[in-house]
Design a protein around this nucleic acid. Sequence first.
DNA 1: TTGAAAGCGCTAACAT
DNA 2: ATGTTAGCGCTTTCAA
Lengths: 345, 345
Amino acid sequence: MKATIGDVAKKAGVSITTVSRVINNNYPVSSATRRKVEDAVSRLNFTPNTLARGLIQKKTFTIGVVVPSITNLFFPEVVNGIETVMQPEGYTFFLTETLERDEKEKKHVNRLLERQIDGIIVIGPSNHIMEEGFYERITGEIPTVIVNGFNKGIKCNFVLTDEKSGIREVLEYLYGLKHRNMAFMRGRKSYSYDLKEKVYKDFFIEKSIPLNEDNIIEIESGNNIASVKMAENAISRRLAKPEPPTAVVCCNDWMAVGAVRAADALGLAVPEDISVTGFDNILVSQLNKPEITTVDQGMNDIGKSAARLLLELINGGNRQAPLKKIILETKLVKRKSVKQPEGMV
Amino acid sequence: MKATIGDVAKKAGVSITTVSRVINNNYPVSSATRRKVEDAVSRLNFTPNTLARGLIQKKTFTIGVVVPSITNLFFPEVVNGIETVMQPEGYTFFLTETLERDEKEKKHVNRLLERQIDGIIVIGPSNHIMEEGFYERITGEIPTVIVNGFNKGIKCNFVLTDEKSGIREVLEYLYGLKHRNMAFMRGRKSYSYDLKEKVYKDFFIEKSIPLNEDNIIEIESGNNIASVKMAENAISRRLAKPEPPTAVVCCNDWMAVGAVRAADALGLAVPEDISVTGFDNILVSQLNKPEITTVDQGMNDIGKSAARLLLELINGGNRQAPLKKIILETKLVKRKSVKQPEGMV
DNA sequence: TTGAAAGCGCTAACAT
DNA sequence: ATGTTAGCGCTTTCAA
């Protein structure tokens, strides 16, 4: 049976209170007593029960981290950033995967709340749940940070990457290389996709290029490995249609990998015959042949920023503190998958 | 302020016990009372405090999962397998990264124990900590499952993939294709690497091939993205030495990717000039050009098996239960990175 | 410098 | 079917 503070007290011949003072080191204790207690602690192999402590202190040194999926290279990098910051502060975290199912997401968040976490970081929340005001309510209950989620008019704390200017930079870059027939590939329902699509459409209007609806390609899956195959199929289909694009702008790197594979399969060379861009700068974009031009989001920094903001909220203790929106700049990473289209020099 | 069971009781005009009975649904309650309570619960937005519950029940529906690193494709896949099994059972898990630092590993495990987890799954523990008997002690305290760790003579519950026969199958395959000069690439201190190296050496003895010590290549890093660059450098160096190998057998897929890149950089074609094999069958092995021949470990199944075993241990409640060692078979996945060496037909 | 006692929010006998 | 009471293991007044 695990030793309790009472066992230690008995063995050391002091009161429970004294033991508590020694292990927390928060009140004066004579060095003789201290030694006795420390001795008993190590002989009984005692470790305090953090449930009991949390119950009384209303503080658990535990946070919740919610991600859409852990089996892709983007979210783990963010999670790692979070851990880097939180671990030295004594926090441990619950990780929970929603797999982009709305019901799951709410259920998991509620489950985390029951566990008396000190705060929560939600990465890529469902658009719908966000709009419904769910996280505004959560924000009222505990410190909450939303990463890369729908934020228009939503009263929450956010850490966002400037995806709009990121995708815009890609479009400008391709445009500067004389690309005009650019396809756009997105996944289903997520704020990021909506955002990027809007920038894409606006860009075409701004440049007075007629928009070919066939060039907006949506695949079922989101930002994960499954996207590769789906993107591959979708792009193959698009390339079979009239006026094949000279460039494909993808909402994430997995899709870009799929696009390259589709081109390959049809005997088209990237970037000679068709250019491809990704987003996120996950490792695969660098390992791919050709290396993929993409937008770096500083995934690790996103995690760190979110964690720091959360710590601030937790330690500030001011429930009325003004909400913050931290926006991180993106960076275009030019690599080998982009070229000026033929006959356009 | 968060509502407590007492608030609900007052509002519903019943005793705390009755509220408890309603929310746990474990004792008969008249439907009228039930309705009153449920009404109060939803009006107060009440959720039970699991700390208090855990404190008294000695059961938290919480487990700990310890991984060396989350930012690679192998561990997340295992973690996902674990979650797939545990989530429906009502468990939430603490995730903690050790980054292959021995001190961290022990500290984190202890921290998890303080949090009164119901069980723990440790993936790829440190060899040294394992041998030191640390996890045997933990096993005495709570249900514990070790995944792919040093297990010789260690009294713990294990889920292992048969890495020995996996690497052996690779060697047999290459040998059958007439490869004799095969390099072996491993990382530092981990049971897996030791195991595989032993098989490699034994194989050469068995086949009476003289062993070239230059062919055993060790890189600092383990199974993560950093391995790519390190492997690339190490292989470049090896290829510059006399008697360059016709094949490189790598302990994981990241290394294999690095090996292919090294060959590329030197103008050697894979597999025409040099063959490369990986291990794990993570997605990159499939995305690489050429696709890499590797050994599938069924990463997701590893996670599921570990979770199921842990559940068994938790629910069995028998601390004396015989220890189990579950061994999962591997599968050689033949792809494009292997060929018969020149002039050997 | 130390201890006694109350209580965190809940469950689990034991009554009624 | 419902309520009373005694804790779970700890921290925190309050006294001494």
